[in-house]
Structures are given as C-alpha cells and as structure tokens.
Amino acid sequence: MSVPLEQYLVVGAILFVLGAVGFLTRRNLITLFLCAELMLQGVTLNFVAFSKHHGQMTGQVFSLMIITIAACEAGLALALILVLYNSRRTLDVSVWQDLRESGLEQTIDTEPLPAPADEAAMPRLQEAGKMPTRRRGDSYV
C-alpha cells in the first residue's frame, strides 16, 4: 500500500491556499507571479496524485499541459513586467490603479516604514568584462 490520496490532496490544497493568499497580499509583481505558479504547483500535485490513485496516465498528461501553459505565462508575464517597469520604474502592482471609479481617492500607503533593514541583499549584475568586486554587505542571496 502507498500513501493515501487524501493526504496528497490536503498538501495540494495547502499549497494552493498559500499561493492564493500570497497573490492577494504581496505587492511585488514578480512575487505575485511566483505565487500564481505556487497555486499551479498545488493543482499539479492533485492531478498527479489522482493519476496514481486511479492508475490512469491522463492526470500526468494534464500536468504536462499545465507546465507548458505556465511556461508561456511566465514568458509573457515577464515581458509585461519589464514593460510596466520601464514605464513607472517600479514593480509595485498598486501603482497601477488608474482604472478605478472616477472620483475615488487613490489608495496610498500612509503607514511609515521602519528604517531599511537589509538593503544590500539584492543580487547585482556586474558590467561585462570586469572582475566582480564584492563590497561589504553585498549578498549573493
């Protein structure tokens, strides 16, 4: 005997809900898309588990299709993100709220942020042809 189907379903549901909550709360466009991919992972897991449970390959075929679509989506989404970033210089999704009801106030964050914590934790690209230099506090993630 093997691990029962229900347990996989529960894990898939947890991944899906985590992805959904992340999609709803996070503001970074890239994180949003990663969360969408997370939801897709939960769904794919369900398909594969069902495939095993029923002894049918169809579920795996569906998973393959999902991966394909996810790849397309990722490509297009990244292109769009680049365009959006080029026009507003930020990845914050809340910047794009022009399509709201006329006369409504813009939603603006009022709560002040605390002092920046680990600013230098971002990966950087070195210019081509130069020896990468590691500054103090730089992080390679």
Partner: peptide
C-alpha cells in the same frame, strides 16, 4: 528580471 528591475534592493512596496 529581479536583477534588471530591482538593482537598488527591496522596494518600499515589498
């Protein structure tokens, strides 16, 4: 993409 767009580190929105 993150490296292209967010070279200055985590943004406020993050």
């Amino acid at each position: 993409v993150i490296m292209l767009c967010q070279q200055t580190g985590a943004a406020d929105a993050d």
